[in-house]
Nucleic acid binder design. Structure first.
Lengths: 339, 339
DNA sequence: AATTAGCACTCTTGCATGTTGAGTGCTAAT
DNA sequence: ATTAGCACTCAACATGCAAGAGTGCTAATT
C-alpha cells in the first residue's frame, strides 16, 4: 500500500506538499524546478509526478494544471518525510515563559494552551479539561444562601470545584448546615464516588439527598460547556479552502459540536495523532485535518488538546506545537494533582 | 428625520420588509401586489416605492431590480410597524417548562437561554453571567492539596464560586489552614471587597496574602471565558448574506471577541434594544443586527443576553424571544440571589 | 537505461458580444 | 389620484475567441 519511493520521488513529493501548503496553488513542474534547485529538466519532473500520481500520492484538478497532494500524499509526508519535528528553542522558551507567568489555575492554562496552539499552527485549537477517572473527595461545604436555598460546594482532588444549589422544603440555618457538612466530611473525605455510594451509614433524609447529589457531581458525565476552551476559529476561516459557505459551516459546526468532541481519537498520553481529511470517520470534515494529543497522567486524569485546520495545514509546526503544549500541560497537571 | 408615512406607504414598506426577510430576494412591485392583496396596480406601487426610496427607507441594488429595505427602513419597521410583539402562549409555555426542568444552576440556565434564543430567532445567541456589582463574601475555605499547594475557594453572594491555587514557600497542614479559614470567615463574612481591604487587622504575612487574593477574586474584572455562553453560530452562517468569506469571518470574529462583548449597549433591565446594521459603532458588522436585553436586578446583579444575525432578521420573533427569556432569567436570578 | 528537447493537446481564464427577462420610470390617458 | 403602456436599464446566461499555463508523449540524446 505505502510502497517505498525513490529518494528523488520523496524529494519531489516533499517539495510539492510544502509549496502547496505555503501557496494553496497547484505546483507545476517548472515551478518545482525553480524552488528545488534540482538538476533535472521539467520533463523529468513531469515523469516522476506522473508516477507519483499513479501511486496515489498526487492528483491534479484538471488536465493542464499543476499537482496537488492527495490525503495519501499528506499521510506519507507526515509519517515518512517529516521525522521528529521539534519546535525551535526560542519558541519553546516563549511558550514556557508564558505558562509560568500565568496564575496557578487550570482555566488560565487551558486558555493559554488554546491561544498558543492557534497562533503557531494557524488552525482552530481546542482543549478539554482533564477528566479525573475516579476523583477523590477533598472537602464538602454547605452554605446557606437564603432560608430555603443552600449551596453545595464540592472540592475534588486537583482543586476541581463542583457546585450545585439545593432547594429545601423547610428552612435550615447555617449552624445546622455546618454540622451536617462536618459529619459528611468526616465520613466521606478521601473516598471516590463509588466508595461513597456503597458506604452504609445511618443517614437522615436530608443527608441522603446531599449524598446522592454529591455522587452525581463526582461522576464524570460528558463534557460540560465550561470544560472546553477553543480559539482561532477566525483565523482558520481565512484560509481559501473555506471560501465556500458549506465547507466553512461544516468546520464551524464540527468545531462547536460536543458530539464531535466526544468521538475524538483515543490516543495514549505522549503520542501525537494526525487525522487527515476526516479519514472516513467524519465525512463532513473531508477537507480538514486534525493534530491531536492526550495530556495529563495516564489512567488517572487526562484531557485532549489539538488543532483543526485545512488538510493543507503546516503539519510540522502543528505537530511540534501540539506535542510541546501537551508536554507542558502534562507537567502542569502533575504538579497540581500530585502523585 | 423619520417623517410620518401615509397608511398605504406604511403597509407597502411593511410588506417589502416582511417578504425580503422571508425570501432574501429584492421585492418587485408585481410580487408585492400579489402578496398584499391591495387593490392597486403595480404602477401605483412603483410610484410609492419611489417615494419610499427618496425618503431613504428602501433602495434597489441595480436599476431593474426590486426593492430592499435600508437600515432606516428596518428601524422604522421595528419602531413603528411592529408594536408590542409577544411570543405565542404555547411557545412561552414550552420555554418556561424547560427552565423549570433544568437544575438549579446558573450555568445550565445560561446554556438553556442561549439554545432557546438561537432556535427561535435563527440568529447566533449569547448570554453573559450576571455580574454582581459589589459581591458580598459568604464563605472562605482553604484546602490543602499537596504539602506546599493549597486551594482557596470563595463563595460569594448568589452562589458564585471563585477559586484559586496558592503555592506556599513552606508546607502547612490542613489543621492550620482550617484555623486560618475560620479566622478569616469570622472577620470577613458579610463584607464586600472594598470593606475587606479597608478593615484593619493584625494579620500574619500568609493571611495578608490570602486577603489580597480574595479581594482580587471578588473585584469583577472583565468577563472571564466561562462567563459567556454562545449558541447558534452555525445556523446564522447558513444565511445567504454570509456567503462571502470576509463577512462571515467578520461575524464569527465579532461574535467570539471579548472586546465586542464589553462594548455592548448599556440598556436598563426591562427594555429590549435593537441595533441595526452596526449603527456606526461596529463598522465590520454593517450587515448585522442585534437584539439585546439586560436581565437581573438593576444596580445589583445584571447580565446581558441577545441575538446577533443578519440585518434581514425576523425582528418580531427575535424581540419576542429575547424579551421573554430576559424576563425568565431575571426571575431566576431574583430567586437565587434573594433580595 | 535514464534524461531531455520539443511539440501537440487540453483546459482555465479573461474578454468581448449578443440575447433574454425582470423590473423600473415616465408619460399620457382615464 | 390612478393606471395602461412603453422605452429603457441591467443582471444573468450563453457563446465565441485568444492567450497562457501546463501536461503527456515521442523521438532524440547522453
Amino acid at each position: 500500500m505505502m510502497a517505498d519511493l525513490t529518494l528523488r520521488q520523496q524529494s519531489i513529493l516533499g517539495i510539492v506538499i510544502r509549496t502547496y501548503i505555503a501557496t494553496a496553488q497547484p505546483v507545476s513542474s517548472k515551478a518545482l524546478l525553480e524552488l528545488s534547485g534540482l538538476e533535472f529538466s521539467s520533463a523529468t519532473i513531469r515523469n516522476e509526478m506522473a508516477v507519483l500520481e499513479d501511486l496515489g500520492y498526487l492528483t491534479h484538478p484538471h488536465t493542464s494544471a499543476g499537482r496537488i497532494p492527495t490525503d495519501k500524499g499528506y499521510r506519507y509526508f507526515v509519517e515518512r518525510l517529516l521525522g521528529d519535528v521539534v519546535l525551535p528553542l526560542d519558541e519553546r522558551k516563549t511558550i514556557r515563559h508564558q505558562f509560568h507567568q500565568a496564575r496557578l489555575e487550570m482555566g488560565q492554562w487551558m486558555q493559554l494552551a488554546a491561544t498558543v496552539m492557534a497562533r503557531t499552527s494557524r488552525g482552530a485549537s481546542l482543549i478539554t479539561a482533564p477528566q479525573i477517572e475516579q476523583p477523590i473527595l477533598k472537602h464538602i461545604e454547605l452554605i446557606s444562601t437564603q432560608p430555603k436555598l443552600i449551596l453545595l460546594v464540592l472540592v475534588l482532588q486537583g482543586g476541581v470545584v463542583r457546585q450545585q444549589m439545593i432547594a429545601l422544603r423547610e428552612p435550615m440555618d447555617q449552624v445546622a448546615l455546618s454540622q451536617t457538612a462536618a459529619f459528611l466530611n468526616a465520613q466521606y473525605t478521601g473516598l471516590n464516588a463509588v466508595a461513597i455510594r456503597s458506604k452504609s451509614l445511618e443517614l437522615s433524609d436530608f443527608e441522603i439527598e446531599v449524598m446522592r447529589i454529591m455522587v452525581g457531581l463526582m461522576s464524570s458525565e460528558s463534557h460540560h460547556a465550561a470544560d472546553v476552551v477553543r480559539d482561532g476559529l477566525t483565523g482558520v476561516l481565512r484560509e481559501p479552502e473555506f471560501g465556500n459557505q458549506s465547507d466553512a459551516r461544516a468546520l464551524v459546526s464540527a468545531f462547536e459540536s460536543p458530539v464531535f468532541l466526544n468521538g475524538l481519537i483515543d490516543a495514549p498520553v505522549g503520542t501525537v495523532q494526525v487525522v487527515i481529511g476526516g479519514e472516513g470517520r467524519w465525512r463532513e470534515l473531508s477537507s480538514c485535518s486534525m493534530v491531536l494529543a492526550r495530556y495529563g497522567t495516564e489512567g488517572f486524569a487526562t484531557g485532549l488538546l489539538g488543532v483543526l485546520g485545512p488538510t493543507r495545514m503546516p503539519y510540522d509546526r502543528a505537530i511540534g506545537t501540539v506535542r510541546y503544549v501537551a508536554e507542558l500541560m502534562s507537567t502542569m497537571v502533575g504538579e497540581i494533582y500530585g502523585e
